[in-house]
């Protein structure tokens, strides 16, 4: 989990950041699923001979969270594509340099 978080913070490449974000999220998903584990339990399906089930609720929750995560990644990637189109780069420091230029330009117009 911390690994993913670290990637998000340290990486300058926008795509890598998104990968980091995914790692971060997936780790949380795993955390949820591990929570639902009951010792000796099986899948929560009614079958004869099995008395102990693992808790199905976290699984259901994480299904939703995964959907959300996918949507987030998709949106982030789409944004990255647009950024690449307009700035010509997806390296954060280069983008920042370009933005500073934008700001300089704005300032010139000021009285």
């Amino acid at each position: 989990m911390m690994m993913g978080f670290y990637i998000v913070i340290s990486q300058h490449n926008l795509i890598k950041k998104i990968v980091g974000l995914n790692v971060f999220q997936v780790s949380v998903f795993v955390f949820y699923i591990s929570m639902g584990k009951v010792k000796g339990g099986t899948a929560p399906v009614f079958l004869d001979g099995f008395e102990i089930y693992s808790n199905p609720l976290p699984h259901v929750l994480i299904l939703t969270a995964i959907v959300v995560g996918v949507a987030t990644s998709a949106l982030a990637l789409a944004l990255t594509v647009r950024i690449k189109d307009t700035y010509g780069t997806i390296e954060e420091d280069e983008i920042e340099a370009l933005e500073t230029e934008d700001q300089e330009k704005e300032k010139e117009g000021l009285p």
Partner: peptide, 24 residues
């Protein structure tokens, strides 16, 4: 402004981290 894109991207990263923290 083209900076809207990066602003949205940053918001997305921060926002998602926030949401993930929440869900933890």
């Amino acid at each position: 402004d083209r900076r809207a894109l990066t602003a949205a991207y940053r918001y997305l990263i921060m926002g998602t981290i926030g949401a993930t923290f929440y869900i933890i």
